Simulated scan of single mutants.
Amino acid sequence: MTRSLRELSDRLEIQDLLVDYSYAVDKRDWDALDRIFTPDASIDFRATGGACGDLATIKAFLVKALAHFTVTQHLVAASKIELDGDAATGRTMCHNPMVFDGGRVLFVGLWYVDRFVRTATGWRIADRVQELAYFHNDPRPR
Rank of each mutant, 00 (worst) to 15 (best):
N137Q: 13
F61S: 07
A60H: 08
P97C: 13
Y112G: 00
T38L: 13
G49K: 05
R11S: 10
L75S: 14
K80I: 02
N96F: 01
D20C: 05
A51D: 10
L75F: 08
M93P: 00
L83C: 12
L110S: 13
C94W: 01
K80R: 11
A47P: 07
V25T: 14
I125T: 04
L18C: 01
M1V: 12
A78S: 13
I36S: 04
Q73G: 07
T38W: 10
F135S: 03
D10T: 07
V105S: 11
T119V: 06
H95V: 05
A47Q: 06
R142E: 11
A87F: 06
K59L: 08
A126Q: 09
L106N: 10
R11H: 06
T70W: 08
A120N: 07
G49C: 05
D16Y: 06
R11T: 02
N96E: 15
F135A: 06
T72S: 14
K64G: 03
G122W: 06
A65H: 06
A32R: 15
F45D: 00
A24K: 03
D138N: 15
R3D: 12
D101A: 14
N137H: 12
N137A: 15
A32E: 03
A120E: 06
Q73R: 04
T89P: 09
P97M: 11
T57Y: 00
H74L: 00
G109D: 10
R11K: 10
A126M: 07
G50L: 08
L17N: 03
R104V: 15
R104Q: 15
F69K: 07
V105K: 12
Y112H: 03
F100S: 10
W30A: 12
D40I: 09
L17Y: 03
M98E: 07
S42Y: 13
L62K: 04
Y21M: 04
R28P: 02
L75H: 04
T72A: 08
G50R: 02
M98C: 13
Q130N: 13
H74T: 05
R28F: 00
V71D: 12
A56I: 02
Y134E: 07
R91Y: 01
A51R: 09
R118P: 11
W30F: 15
L12C: 07
G53E: 06
F107Q: 06
T70Q: 14
K27P: 02
H68W: 05
F135I: 10
F37G: 02
T70G: 12
L17T: 03
D10C: 12
L8F: 14
K80N: 01
R118H: 09
M93S: 04
G103C: 12
C94T: 06
A78K: 09
G50K: 07
